[in-house]
Design a binder for these strands. Structure first.
Length: 708
DNA sequence: ACGGTTGGTACA
DNA sequence: TTGTACCAA
């Protein structure tokens, strides 16, 4: 449970952006003929038409709900369009949705501090932008507020369905003598409307949003008016909102904790929580949760928007319900292999695109013993160091499974009883590689004239073998088996257009990984000493294990791979907050208005001119200035393509936060002089490049950030 | 004996 | 640090 820092002067402006029935939208973009039709995305299961995981709003009008089976949906709505989730390796493959989510995040992250909360949700911290707007171009000066913003819902505004809601909203947004906090929210609303239109323009996706003073209220609000609408929670309406809000509607209270509050404390609305003292709540739920509850009851939540654009872990799993439960080691191994193959591919993509390395492999399984009715013991999770390379991950995962199985199965009992109902492997503890450029690259480039990659096939081995406790036996009692529902793996190997270029990148990656591993190993963690690694050139040179690298990339090139979005934390290292200040000359530019830009349009202009730090954006502004064009909803494919490539070609200069005192200096001295220098540069706090944002206008609203 | 799959966080 | 449980969508 997150600890809420009580910040009574909570004048932040936070937004929560929630994509509308996201998977459906992704499929409808792919198949535009589905637009406007009742549509659902279904996970093909062969059982009752599969399970629905996303339902369009048209279909919801017919009473179709998530968690219906496909057949059920057909009954309720015979004309419903069911689209299957892609299947790869006998399991659902969500990559297309992940990638679509990345598109959205990268658009938002160009403008504001973002936290990717899930595949289709993002939090934004608009505090600085809103403050800046309030200072320099407050809404009260707007002659015209654009339609999208006027469609905002303002909680507590008289009657909502009043005669002219838009006029009320306009009044609220532009109210001159409003509370400062409300004015900030008004600014936030303008900005969010703009961002949502930008997302629509570039991705064809609609979203809904909530704007409030903290994350939990913003989250609450974003769900209140869907789809494609936004909701503001003025400070003054928080109490009224919470007083009548069913406790289970609050995030984090939808499960057991919420139930306990209802049944044990007799609480039915969030407002009911107000009667309990903090001590009382702590006594029952622990000090952290108690305090959190006490604050939530008052609409207080100090959680910050984390500048994180990428997931902290990757996982691949599958369940084997009922009769499909796995009974043999061989079938378990088969599925582990499939899962590891996918996971391996994904962390490889992460590596290629984001320069991140996953360090821990974890195996989760769920199981039961057919003998025992209520077997107390759950199948234990196990983890170990993650070694890159599909075969290695498969081997390690299998070993983890066997270790778990030994604990799980009753002693002595042969192979009796156990059934595996779920398997998943995940990769976590992901760290960024400092992707420096220059001397290291050059050094290895020079050192290795092998621009050609040997097509030898061996599993790549980025990391030293982990010292696994259970790396011993590997006895399969059953041999080959049939795995029903298991289509032959159709790996789509698409031609790689820029193969040559890709190869070089891979080679660089390999070098960087090797180097990085040396650093990481030495600094943080592991068994390998720098010297021994140096003595083992195979892990430095890109010759070995190159193959798997390439293979993985070739496969990926067929599918859309995750767009490379660097963590915002890193972006901030590259473009530290201080650099966000804009020169005064630009500021005047922001204020300038053309006659064409009446009020609202000037805001759009801000965005359009806000080129993210130079190399970040390759997007051409080729669309008309007219906001209403957005409604037409026919972005060109090129716009989308551009969006996809937004992050490409970016060169990031990362500063490292390694602790110098953890490094054995002698280790560095063994490196070639150029590299020594580079390492030392990494180890020092990075000098910030003096980057000035030019030609931006809405960027003017993004005042220097105060927080770290 | 599960809508399936994926991700996050808190806590011992 | 590892493993477990809970939460959300």
């Amino acid at each position: 449970m997150p600890v809420a820092k009580p910040e009574s002067s909570d004048a932040r402006v936070i937004a929560h952006v929630d994509m509308d029935c996201f998977y459906v939208q992704v499929e409808q973009r792919k198949q535009p003929n589905l637009r406007g039709l009742p549509t659902a995305v279904v996970q093909y299961n062969e059982w009752k038409g599969g399970g629905l995981i996303a339902v369009s709003y048209e279909a919801r009008n017919y009473g179709v709900k998530r968690s219906m089976r496909g057949e059920e949906a057909k009954q309720v709505c015979p004309q419903i369009q069911l689209v299957q989730v892609p299947v790869a390796r006998g399991k659902a493959d969500l990559n297309t949705y992940r990638n679509a989510g990345s598109e959205v995040v990268s658009i938002l992250a160009r403008k504001v501090r973002c936290e990717r909360a899930s595949i289709d949700e993002v939090y934004l911290d608009l505090t600085d932008a809103a403050e800046k707007m309030l200072a320099e171009a407050p809404p009260e000066n707007l002659q015209l507020v654009d339609e999208e913003t006027l469609k905002s819902h303002v909680l507590g505004l008289n009657d909502e369905k009043g005669i002219d809601a838009k006029e009320n909203v306009r009044e609220w947004l532009c109210k001159k003598d409003a509370d400062r906090r409300d004015k900030l929210l008004a600014c936030g609303s303008l900005i969010v409307a703009e961002l949502r239109m930008q997302v629509l323009k570039e991705t064809e996706f609609t979203c809904s949003a909530g704007i409030a003073h903290n994350k939990i209220l913003a989250k609450l609000a974003s769900a209140m008016n869907k789809p494609a609408q936004q909701t503001v929670v003025p400070f003054s309406s928080v109490k009224g909102l919470l007083d009548s809000l069913p406790i289970k509607k609050m995030k984090q209270l939808g499960g057991k904790l919420g139930s306990s509050l209802q049944s044990d404390l007799g609480v039915s609305t969030v407002g009911d929580l107000l009667q309990f003292s903090e001590e009382k709540l702590q006594e029952r739920y622990g000090s952290n949760t108690g305090t959190w509850l006490w604050n939530i009851a008052r609409g207080i939540s100090g959680e910050e928007v984390q500048g994180r654009l990428l997931p902290k872990s990757h996982g691949s799993g599958k369940t084997f319900p009922g009769p499909r439960a796995l009974k043999t080691i061989a079938s378990v191994q088969h599925w582990l292999n499939e899962l590891c193959e996918e996971l391996s591919e994904r962390i490889r993509s992460d590596l290629d695109q984001n320069k991140r390395i996953a360090r821990t492999l974890t195996l989760h399984a769920s199981a039961y013993k057919s003998g025992d009715t209520d077997s107390q013991k759950n199948f234990p999770s196990k983890s170990c160091h993650l070694r890159y390379g599909t075969a290695k991950m498969q081997e390690d995962a299998f070993n983890l499974f066997q270790a778990g199985l030994r604990e799980f199965k009753p002693q002595g009992s042969q192979n009796s009883g156990w059934r595996i109902t779920g398997l998943s492997v995940s990769a976590s503890k992901i760290v960024e590689i400092p992707s420096g450029t220059s001397s290291i690259m050059k050094y290895f480039h020079g050192q290795n004239p092998s621009a050609s990659l040997s097509k030898q096939s061996q599993d790549d081995d980025i990391q030293e073998p982990s010292v696994s406790e259970s790396c011993s036996e590997m006895n399969l009692t059953e041999q080959e088996m049939k795995f029903p529902g298991e289509d032959s793996n159709t790996k789509c190997v698409m031609p790689c257009l820029d193969q040559q270029e890709h190869k070089q990148d891979l080679q660089k990656d390999q070098v960087m990984i090797s180097l990085h591993n040396l650093v990481i190993f030495n600094l943080h963690v592991f068994q390998i000493s720098f010297c021994s690694a140096l003595q083992n050139p195979s892990c430095l040179l890109p010759s070995k294990g190159q193959d798997d690298f390439q293979e993985a990339s070739l496969r990926n090139s067929g599918t859309e791979c995750c767009s490379g979005i660097r963590n915002q934390s890193q972006q901030q290292r590259v473009f530290p907050p201080q650099q966000f200040a804009v020169s005064s000359s630009n500021r005047t530019d922001a204020k300038r208005k053309t006659s064409k830009d009446k009020g609202t349009h000037s805001i759009l202009r801000f965005f359009k001119k806000t080129d993210p730090p130079s190399s970040l954006s390759l997007i051409k502004e080729e669309h008309g200035d007219n906001l209403q064009d957005v409604e037409a909803l026919s972005p060109t494919a090129s716009a989308r393509e551009n969006a996809r490539h937004v992050e490409e070609g970016r060169e990031s200069i990362a500063a490292c936060s390694y602790k110098v005192d953890e490094i054995d200096p002698s280790v560095i001295e063994e490196l070639p002089p150029e590299i020594q220098e580079e390492f030392r540069a990494w180890l020092r706090p990075r000098k910030r490049p003096d980057i000035v944002r030019r030609g931006s206008s809405i960027a003017n609203y993004f005042a220097p950030t105060k927080r770290t």
